[in-house]
Design a protein around this nucleic acid. Structure first.
Lengths: 216, 216
DNA sequence: ACCTGAACACCGTTCAAGT
DNA sequence: ACCTGAACACCGTTCAAGT
């Protein structure tokens, strides 16, 4: 079933182009996105894409813009400011985990700050409700961002290694003196747990220092 | 002055090919490495590269192998185990910072675990001298690795943004209620300091728990 | 053993031409 | 307004041919 059939015969739109392009990029990587393949899957001539959205660079830009729009749509849930910050961190994390190729694309194009901005602002609002503002809040925001980014990186690296069957222990010499260490490093860490653990630690620190400040 | 002139007219070797390829990749990115450009800069026919090292994939593999060899050459300095762990973390950091494109290449090819292995083993030796082994040491190693990786990522992202003139504050609304926060986020953080701060915190925790354990 | 040019299939992009 | 095919310059790779 071609994309043209899906569209029921009506002509292609810019949105259709980006839909298909997004699927190719997320399923097979950025390199797999060729103008000819894109045109084929759309059931249209290559040059038609140039009419609707522009050249390959414009297509990739469009995909990044869509990712940024999705980031703007993230909204906190929960009753307390702490819960709401945590929910934003979790939503940011799953968005990053589900679209690794698009995130990489945004990073290559120096759109990372713009990508994080909406959650950063939403988190800042919650932190203000906790009495944390200024340079103080900036520190927490940076800490949360680093935590989310690094934990998603670790999780993805682990997932790729597992699926490739490249097991760590083979790389260590057989006579290494601390087999427990090798085993512990090879064990597939539960990165959801690692993430939640670090998140809780950061939020606890935020509350602790808050009550310490207000106790003065 | 062509590369052939540098070599004084003698014919090209596999090492010469990788030297030039490494320069192109690190200076202009992986996409800039075309077989024809590589051949041009070597002053040789394209097909000659295929004889010496193989196709484009083999060239990139060779570059990654060189990076891994460099990682194996890292050696700790300092008198105490703590100092030696810190020196390894710092050396790892500068190696990553100086070769971002090659590191990205290794990451794409799932060689990240192999890349970190040598420092991980060297650090494990030092941690053992501090009485930390097994799952306990694995936790510290993971923590150190995450710290190095995330702090280099932040530092590079900041460097790229600064050089591109994309300043954060423009992205925030003018009437945002907490100008101190915006200013603090826009200020170019001293990432060397951030790195050292976190590194010291990790090592302090290692020592603290060590003395706590031995005090039993 | 080493290096070459010719040739092939692929790519992004432009443009004049269609309806 | 929308879509097309032809054409161009570029790419990775193979191969038969040179020395």
């Amino acid at each position: 079933m071609t994309a043209a059939a899906v569209r029921g015969g009506r002509s292609v739109t810019a949105d259709d182009v980006l839909d298909v392009a997004g699927q190719i990029v997320e399923r097979h990587g950025v390199d797999a996105l060729t103008m000819r393949r894109l045109a084929d899957e759309l059931g249209v001539a290559v040059t038609s894409i140039y009419w609707h959205v522009g050249n390959r660079d414009a297509v990739l830009d469009g995909l990044v813009d869509r990712l940024l729009a999705r980031m703007e749509a993230l909204a906190p849930t929960g009753d307390t400011p702490g819960d709401r910050v945590a929910s934003l961190a979790r939503q940011l994390r799953v968005t990053l985990l589900e679209r690794p190729h698009l995130v990489g694309l945004a990073h290559e194009r120096d759109r990372t700050p713009a990508m994080f901005l909406p959650v950063q602002q939403a988190m800042a609002t919650e932190l203000a409700a906790l009495g944390r503002t200024g340079a103080d809040a900036a520190l927490v925001l940076r800490g949360l961002q680093v935590h989310v980014v690094s934990s998603t990186l670790m999780a993805r690296a682990a997932a790729r290694n597992a699926s490739h069957g490249t097991v760590d222990p083979d790389l260590w010499p057989d006579d290494w003196e601390d087999p427990d260490l090798v085993e512990a490093l090879a064990a597939p860490a539960d990165y959801d747990e690692v993430f939640e653990y670090g998140l809780a630690a950061i939020l606890e620190a935020v509350h602790r220092e808050f009550t310490a400040t207000t106790a003065d």
